[in-house]
Write a protein that binds this DNA or RNA. Structure first.
Lengths: 129, 129
DNA sequence: GCCATTAGTGTCAGGAATGATACCATGCCG
DNA sequence: CGGCATGGTATCATTCCTGACACTAATGGC
């Protein structure tokens, strides 16, 4: 996601939908935010445990972008070994209903999508192979 | 967006958030869905008018993916010149609260994000240049 | 015969996003 | 002195996304 999509917000009424998506459409951003709604303060290493499929580089990227967009704050304690805390900003907290809507829908419907059926087929094909 | 991100839905409780995002995280999918909530039946050319920045190829891609995911239906009338109608499926209609949440947030907060400020700076820089 | 229409498809190219891997700083512990 | 811990960077390669452009089919109208 998250390339720059449009540079202006003037493309018809639905445009802010896209604008919102640009903020957390990144590959792992929604998940990062989700975990911060569950646990208000997280350290880098804790993210790594919660998102085991994300490489360190990706995680750093996504966190920095969320920070740059003002959705979360990064607090560095100048100690050794390093200690860094991430938490939602006030603006970030306002995203809660959005993430919540995504989760609610996913919990209800994700397993009924065609995409999901394809995934299951792929998996069983791999198992039988 | 939306390459295939994870193949299973087993990665902790927030995973369905990501799964949902995979469905319409594509560059223009949310906007396509949004327009279909406004106007229940749209033809290919009407999308082109509403999304002037999207190339024909991209629009085709995104529509096909949404169709493949069972979120919208594509009805071809075998006439000349071609006539194709797109509308939401029942599953697609269930996404309305999600898109609505995205739009509500965007309308309220998009203009207060750091990203938005950066965009405005870039624009004025281009103007003065 | 020639052009316009609609909804595409095919090909090519460039750039962005992502992943893998290796490497770094610093202070404590033994 | 050597290794560990934490939170990263740097570099390279690859894959994916996106755009530009040209091309198509079948019919109606001039």
């Amino acid at each position: 996601m998250p390339r720059t999509r449009h540079t202006t917000l003037n493309c018809s009424p639905g445009c802010t939908v896209e604008a919102t998506l640009e903020l957390f459409g990144g590959k792992w951003k929604a998940l990062i935010l989700y975990h911060l709604f569950e646990e208000p303060v997280l350290r880098f290493g804790e993210f790594r445990h919660r998102l085991p499929n994300v490489t360190q580089r990706m995680l750093t990227n996504q966190l920095r972008e969320l920070e740059a967009d003002g959705l979360l704050s990064r607090t560095v304690f100048p100690v050794v070994p390093p200690h860094v805390e991430y938490r939602l900003t006030d603006l970030g907290k306002t995203l809660k209903p959005v993430i919540q809507a995504l989760k609610t829908w996913g919990d209800q419907y994700a397993h009924s999508t065609e995409r999901d059926k394809r995934l299951k087929q792929d998996q069983s094909a791999q198992i039988t192979a």
